[in-house]
């Protein structure tokens, strides 16, 4: 079995750039709450949180350099969760 040697080593610099991006997005999402009101703020907050989690999963969790099965399974889990939330809301809206 191939072990550990096939792993791509990500340079420290990449992690620091991603970290800077994540902190910037956090501050933006905090700043946006002072500006916008109503439904839009929920959507903006969730979109920014999704971008942040994608950055964490793709770079920090090495999904970008992982095997194909995980690259399919991980987004599938998130799509599954999204669908369940969507269907639950359909149910609540039209019952």
């Amino acid at each position: 079995m191939e072990n550990h040697n096939n792993t791509h080593i990500i340079p420290y610099k990449t992690y620091l750039y991603i970290l800077a991006g994540l902190i910037a997005l956090t501050l933006i999402s905090v700043g946006v709450t002072h500006v916008e009101v109503g439904e839009m703020s929920i959507i903006t907050a969730l979109v920014l949180a999704s971008i942040k989690s994608v950055l964490v999963i793709v770079y920090f969790m090495h999904l970008k350099f992982d095997n194909r099965i995980l690259q399919i399974a991980v987004p599938a889990i998130f799509i599954l969760v999204g669908l369940v939330i969507f269907i639950t809301f359909l149910d609540y809206n039209f019952r």
Binding site: H4, I9, I10, Y15, L19, T26, V30, V56, Y59, M61
Partner: peptide, 28 residues
């Protein structure tokens, strides 16, 4: 408190970055 929440978010993001970097540094 949004301030405490923000500080905690940044603390967790930094900790995530450092443990990810540890994965690289052990290989180096």
């Amino acid at each position: 408190s949004v301030t405490i929440g923000t500080i905690n978010t940044i603390a967790l993001l930094i900790s995530s970055a450092t443990i990810a970097m540890a994965s690289s540094s052990i290989r180096l």
